[in-house]
């Protein structure tokens, strides 16, 4: 597996190299529903082996984008290459290299967990052994349980089992943990961590900030049908470079200073005020502040 990830800052200007290290390449993608422009010109590169999160609020264009990449939707404009193929002209052999975990709608299949995975496996040339996949998603105890009897979190795990049984090179996960309680989400994150070990490329969409931060190598923030930023989670929005706010109380009044060098400011204050600084607080913008700013909502 390569450890190089494509350029972070210059992703929108570098043309897509048509080599085997690129799993997904998107240029100028557009899609409208009537007068509503759901996707308004997206560029994106995802490397093989990478876990990429598309983060954005509901209605930002995440699902539309992903469904175009999955071959479910037609695009109005732009170039798309997924595993070297245009998904709009995808055939069964292309589909055999893709795993798709759709937004869950529930369902009440009367098949057991094992039967559900087994029939899915029959569509693929070289599927993973059924029991191995079920073990991987932690459903071994539910092997013979009806799919309809599973809890929401267990159903989602079954969805993932169906997504990975064909040994996909690329796995799409559309809002995989929506509706989960915190415990189920933690468990799900662990599962994704295990899949990472297998070297599967993943594109996941989420509107949970902490999820993107916990899972993804890189995050693309999408709002209003555009990607407003791509970066590694720690550097999103230039957070690591963002000026800090130093607050304190002097002469009975609240004072505030925004600075790139908060340590120096605090030192100077300490000298001036003789040791302890009353009401001292040093704040950097949280990822949430940055995110809300990026998607254009009042922080």
């Amino acid at each position: 597996m390569t450890t190089d990830s494509p350029g972070v800052a210059d992703h929108q200007t570098t043309p897509a190299p048509a080599d085997v290290d690129v799993a997904i390449s998107v240029r100028g993608l557009r899609k409208s529903y009537g007068v509503h422009e759901a996707v308004a010109g997206i560029d994106l590169d995802i490397a093989r082996g990478e876990i990429f999160a598309l983060l954005g609020p509901n209605g930002a264009g995440k699902t539309t984008t992903v469904e175009i990449l999955e071959g479910y939707r037609r695009r109005d404009a732009g170039e798309v290459s997924v595993l070297g193929v245009d998904p709009a002209r995808a055939d069964a052999r292309w589909k055999s290299q893709i795993g798709i975990v759709l937004q869950s709608k529930g369902g009440d299949s009367e098949l057991t967990v094992a039967e559900t995975v087994r029939v899915q496996a029959s569509y693929f040339a070289n599927p993973r052994p059924v029991e191995e996949v079920i073990g991987l998603v932690g459903l071994t105890e539910k092997l013979k349980a009806r799919a309809s009897s599973l809890s929401g979190g267990q159903q989602r795990r079954l969805d993932v089992a169906l997504g990975i049984v064909g040994r996909p090179r690329l796995l799409f996960l559309d809002e995989p943990t929506t509706g989960f309680d915190p415990e189920a989400r933690r468990q799900f994150w662990e599962l994704i961590g295990q899949l990472r070990q297998l070297g599967t490329t993943m594109l996941l969409t989420t509107h949970y900030l902490d999820e993107a931060e916990a899972l993804a190598d890189r995050v693309g923030v999408i709002a209003g049908g555009r990607i407003v930023e791509v970066g590694i989670p720690a550097e999103l929005g230039g957070r690591h470079l963002a000026p800090a706010r130093v607050r304190w109380v002097e002469d009975g009044r609240r004072r505030e200073e925004t600075t790139a060098t908060p340590t120096a400011v605090v030192q100077a204050l300490s000298q001036r005020l003789g040791g302890e600084i009353p009401g001292l607080a040093v704040q950097r913008p949280s990822l949430e502040d940055i995110y809300l700013q990026m998607i254009g909502e009042p922080a």
Binding site: E70, K95, I98, I100, L102, G107, S109, Q120, G166
Partner: peptide, 10 residues
């Protein structure tokens, strides 16, 4: 969504 899921497989 079961049909949609099927149509995304080979």
């Amino acid at each position: 969504g079961r049909l949609k899921r099927l149509s995304g497989t080979p």
